[in-house]
Design a protein around this nucleic acid. Structure first.
Lengths: 335, 335
DNA sequence: TTGTATGCGTTATCAA
DNA sequence: TTGATAACGCATACAA
């Protein structure tokens, strides 16, 4: 009908005061069974559900978790956001999801504060940031009481948050161990620069390359449109005559695979993220699995336990990744 | 800091009443330049931004658009949601995005009303539903004043909405014209059943197959995990010795492609949605492009013009698709 | 042009 | 155990 029924309508129908209705919906005890029944009946008849945000306005918080997704075009992020949402839903906790809209001003990535403000206006009880944000200024002004967990990215300048992310060093060790065991030594890394996760991964690669006594060749791609710039970067990388290419993520690797196809090259190739496309027979990409399930578990644990969160505030929690070996690194092995 | 500054804080600092502050932030005129300056100055110093949802509570609506994404695992949906968000953002309109969480009870898909209720509590000025929802009961109770646009799906029982979607009949005509021109007549359709878009597409295929005088073979897949069930369905379909396979969407086609690879079969294959993966050299999938940009334009037009919306209420707007021809249907042609 | 009062739907405080 | 009342942050009708 015209408008959602309110606590007022329910009270009137049940013949009680509004306060009593509020009590019934908030507290387990403190209301007589008779009246409780009466209120529930009226509520059911009217199809009443509490307005969570009017409630938040008054009480100052409202048990839901705000999820901010850094980039909707990254399937890893949306998939993770949904996994987290489901995990919380299973515990009866609602999640609201918003995107951070990114604009580029004078070559610098800036995020629009408006969506974040709106999210904060809703008074979430905690915040989950999925992916790396170039800019944390919209979060500067918020209450210290609000727990913030950042995931799939390092913390950056968000000092008060807990970050849960893949152990990049370990991931690159797995990749290079694998490639070296296949006899590769002329390896080129292909990936973007300038963004947080991109930089973390580059550093991890460089550090591990040094440990593996491998010369570090790096070829850069654009940050966005990974698969397209992967193609371009792949063509450049091939001019260095590598025997193996290590890519920033699966999407870049897919683009590089196109470059290999065009040049009829059979250079070994690795990705990162274990996107399901990598598992297709025609793609069959060796890649790093970030262990999303473990990450979700950790996030749920952190945001369900205020004391645990407080004790880990400002820390980075590293989750151990796995290597998934497929055809893309098998060609040399077969010789 | 502890709490976001309110209109009250700004008023106090500027030495005016709260209403005046409200006026400054709402209306262009009606406040003297002197006071306006004073208020803006105080607001800037305190870092004040209006609480959009407190405002909504009072005014009954709050110029943002609520986007409900039927399924976060479908990249078409998230990509479209983000395209729409960007298009509205360019016009200064904010969008909030929520997911409909789906659960299966007694074999029937049910959607959780809670996320929808929360979305409605926010009092959006319009609603955009991306993808097909199995169940529209959570929308039953809402004001007739609220414009609802549904996209990438037929309306179903949401009579009051305007639906913008691909012309499925036309799409299947393009596919079958193409396949027939290549000499195919033994064709199998592979796709799910029981869900709205799935049924629409099946019907469109059957109708067009009849017009093309092609015998209709249909093989069913599960609704979820399209690529996995595509593999299984592909193996079944191949037992019918087809020369071409028409798939419900790209994801199903990717799975079928795996089946072809395993059987070393070179049967022609088409997808639907023009996911960017289909453009990879190793995949090269002939597919239908739904013309997302046109759909977004139409949605923006509808939700920007109340009169236009009113005049089209209850209608379905069909957008003409394009056929994208790639290698997956080229093998027979080359003979 | 500016300030006051009231209410949106809810919760918190106090009295009964 | 229950009900009246104020307040959350804001918008609006009305008065000044």
């Amino acid at each position: 009908m015209a408008n959602r029924p309110t606590i007022h309508d329910v009270a009137e129908r049940a013949g009680v005061s509004k306060s009593l209705v509020a009590l019934v919906f908030k507290q387990e005890s403190g209301v007589s069974a008779k009246r409780r029944e009466l209120v529930m009946q009226a509520a059911k008849e009217l199809g009443y559900t509490p307005n969570a945000f009017a409630s938040a306005l008054r009480s100052g918080n409202n048990g839901f978790i705000g999820i901010v997704v850094a980039d909707f075009h990254n399937p890893l992020f949306t998939e993770f956001a949904d996994l987290a949402r489901q995990a919380f839903a299973a515990r009866g906790i609602f999640c609201f999801i918003a995107t951070a809209s990114i604009s580029i001003e004078d070559g610098v990535e800036r995020i629009d504060p408006v969506p974040i403000q709106h999210m904060l206006d809703l008074k979430p009880s905690s915040l989950l940031i999925v992916g790396g944000l170039a800019d944390h200024t919209p979060f500067k002004n918020i209450s210290d009481k609000l727990p913030i967990v950042q995931v799939l990215s390092s913390k950056g300048d968000l000092k008060r948050a807990v970050s849960v992310r893949c152990n990049e060093e370990r991931a690159m060790k797995l990749v290079l161990d694998h490639l070296q065991s296949l006899g590769h030594s002329n390896i080129v890394y292909i990936g973007p620069a300038g963004e947080r996760v991109a930089e973390d991964r580059r550093r991890a690669y460089q550090s591990q390359a040094k440990k593996h006594k491998i010369k570090t060749h790096m070829v850069s791609t654009n940050i966005s449109k990974n698969e397209e710039s992967g193609l371009a970067a792949g063509l450049i990388a091939l001019q260095l005559n590598p025997t193996a290419l290590v890519c920033f993520n699966d999407n870049v690797a897919f683009g590089v695979q196109d470059a290999l196809a065009r040049k009829k090259s059979k250079v070994a190739l690795t990705g990162f993220d274990n996107t399901f496309f990598g598992n297709l027979e025609r793609i069959s990409l060796t890649t790093i699995d970030q262990n999303k399930a473990l990450i979700v578990d950790k996030v749920v644990e952190l945001l369900s336990d205020a004391k645990l969160f407080a004790s880990l505030r400002g820390e980075e929690i590293l989750i151990e990744p796995n290597l998934v070996v497929r055809e893309s690194t098998a060609s040399l092995q077969k010789r």
